[in-house]
Write a protein that binds this DNA or RNA. Structure first.
Lengths: 202, 202
DNA sequence: CTGCATCCGGGCCGATACTG
DNA sequence: CAGTATCGGCCCGGATGCAG
């Protein structure tokens, strides 16, 4: 991208991550190291040449590093993008109220709202395992030692299983939807939903 | 901009503020309401049609509102962009270490690093008035009641006057430069610099 | 099959000219 | 002062090719 040519931290930051698709690539890598094909899978709609070019730019700028096997991961500095990414997601949370419509969805994207909703460590949070079954592959929300995070794949013995469309699931996680209104959106819950509310400190 | 078409808060947020120049327009409006010509002045390099189009988009999305006299200002939701903007500026702070070079600078841009460095309210901070004289118009850094912010224009009776190039001034504000190394960059200080350090809690 | 590079049509960006 | 109109060029998006 052409530089803004401004001696300003925001402008210089945008010179690095302001390109189209760039921050979404960072979102994918914040979940963990990813192969090229996994990145494509998590970024529906991106052109393959764009993904390659962005990764090259991010590597040059010191945000992304690739190891010998061709796996991409964030550098230490790149990891620190979690703060602005979470802040932007939090700001944009009201936009999630309008339904999914034709928008695509990948269940690994739940890592972002989960990180925003259950951020930090709270020792009072109970241990809990939730399996999420939505459009594509199942993912697991784990609560251990006060921290909450998302892992790809189903759970071995979940305390709670939530099945349904993405907007209903996100509404439930945020606490914006009641169990009955979520059910109207097609969400099925296996287990006691109050255990989820307790993760938010409810 | 074309929507990413993803049911993800980050993607939907970028659909609103991900366009080129958009977040820099928000930076200008975070300082306070601005006229069209003032925005142009604070965004060197932007094309006038782009500025008009971005303002229209931001207004449609409910980020910006314009009053009867044609003054633009952020809505309540738009104001909340201060969090992601500050987070991005904080992340990009290391990029400010490379010198200004040919980059343009406006002294009102100091409002952003000042907000990042002296964020929040700290009652132990002393009352202080600093006048900054850099490339263009003078600005004033005010510390009152534990809060620190930037006002356009010179101060009436400053406790401290700092004159010099932008990179030297920003380095001094962050505490990354000593008084002597700042002086080597052409920074002149009128008054006792230790009073500035005390604002940071030093 | 993975991990890109190349090519091309269309849309967005950048600069200038112009208008109420 | 506050934009609109216009136009060349670059970037984006989608399809395809191809080397390891």
């Amino acid at each position: 991208m052409k530089s803004y040519g401004q001696y300003c931290a925001l402008a210089r930051g945008l010179d690095v991550i302001g390109d189209r698709w760039t921050l979404l690539i960072v979102r994918e890598l914040l979940v963990g190291p990813r192969r090229y094909s996994e990145l494509r899978e998590g970024l529906p709609g991106i052109a393959t040449n764009l993904l390659a070019e962005r990764l090259r730019d991010l590597e040059e700028h010191g945000v992304v590093a690739r190891d010998a096997e061709g796996t991409y991961q964030l550098t230490e500095w790149g990891q620190e993008l979690s703060a602005p990414v979470h802040a932007l997601a939090r700001w944009a949370a009201p936009l999630m109220a309008t339904p999914q419509g034709d928008d695509t969805f990948r269940s690994t994207w739940l890592a972002l709202p989960v990180a925003v909703i259950f951020n930090g460590i709270d020792k009072r949070r109970p241990r809990l395992t939730i399996e999420i079954r939505s459009n594509d592959a199942a993912v697991t929300i784990e609560s251990r030692n006060g921290a909450v995070w998302v892992e790809p794949g189903p759970a071995t013995s979940p305390d709670l299983v939530i099945t349904g469309p993405p907007d209903g699931i996100v509404g439930l996680l945020m606490g914006a939807l009641s169990e009955t209104s979520a059910a109207e959106q097609g969400v099925t819950i296996g287990g006691d939903l109050h255990r989820l509310a307790r993760l938010r400190g409810g």
